[in-house]
Design a binder for these strands. Sequence first.
DNA 1: TTCCTTTGCTAACGAGTGTTAGTTTATGGC
DNA 2: GCCATAAACTAACACTCGTTAGCAAAGGAA
Lengths: 195, 195
Amino acid sequence: MASTNHIPTREKVKLTAQKLFREKGYAAVGMRELAAAAGMRAPSVYNHYRSKDHILQEICFDIAGQFFKALDEALAKEQKSSRQLRAAIRAHIDVIAANLDSAEVFFHEWIFLEQPALGKFKKMRQEYARRFREILERGIRKKEIRKVNTRLATFAIFSALNATYEFMRSDEKFSREQMADELADMLIKGLKNKD
Amino acid sequence: MASTNHIPTREKVKLTAQKLFREKGYAAVGMRELAAAAGMRAPSVYNHYRSKDHILQEICFDIAGQFFKALDEALAKEQKSSRQLRAAIRAHIDVIAANLDSAEVFFHEWIFLEQPALGKFKKMRQEYARRFREILERGIRKKEIRKVNTRLATFAIFSALNATYEFMRSDEKFSREQMADELADMLIKGLKNKD
DNA sequence: TTCCTTTGCTAACGAGTGTTAGTTTATGGC
DNA sequence: GCCATAAACTAACACTCGTTAGCAAAGGAA
């Protein structure tokens, strides 16, 4: 039975889960709470999802797919490394902005995934990071980017980017484009004044 | 009864909690599991801590105090803004490095604090961020730092710094000093090559 | 050694957990 | 309208949760 908002019930469960998991943490949200927030009783959720873990899996892997897709598309448009870096940053932020709740779940709650999905997810995270690192390494080889520890830099870039959800929640006066540009500037040009 | 390692039992409970809360998340670690890992039964923990929440409080507020202390000491030694920023970054990383487990609990698990501790903690976070932002704003006024959105920059800096625990766990070949310097360089000078 | 306090234990409480099984209701197709 | 299926429900299972109460053991001081 589709809900009254024309959102399919399964989708509603997922959206509700994203929100609650993000607000309270996966482990602290029970199926009864989730079901009630979605407008049903807990056992009904099992008509749509096999288990609580499967909800988490779908949330995490869906948005992971979006990050990869956005990155691929962004990289396909640019050749120069610092431009690629900027485009990658932009792509990453766009995905976060379009999926605030699930992005937060993706960043924080994946540790609760059960095997074998957990192992698969870890590999995906590593692969995505590797692609960012490649951009940096290419840029270093071409002398476009300073010689840095690319592993450390990748960690720093990701965490800076991944915290943008907090900023997005607190200040809506920024367009995505502006924020992406400012962040990219900060990371690429640094904070020090050149005057 | 002090444990056989000459670590007071209460301290052992705390260290164990830090580790488990960080590994599995506060909500997913039960008192029975925590007690067993500390070498006792769950009800015995209540001889040392009033509640599970009080353990979390002590973890969070203790390290918060360390962050503030380290920051104050670092700022007292420097006057120039970009040097202050570097010192602040260094101080922050030092605290993380010395308290890997509790730092992670501090970053991720504070949302589980119960009121009124939660409200108090949020204020502390904001105050700490405000101090960083002040460094940036002072530097901008003195033209030492580029004109940036200081709120966004503070978010980015913090998250970049706060993710260093992940890097510290994965690669021990770096000294703290080196890592602090490289991160500070990345944030202050940026990634782009000036050659 | 004795006594008191602290700290460990066992047993249990009242509450919550994810999920299954079976029944009832709603929906969609003919 | 009828029928089959999907999706909602209730009841309940087996388990876990944080914690209290009371007893036992250990440690420290006199």
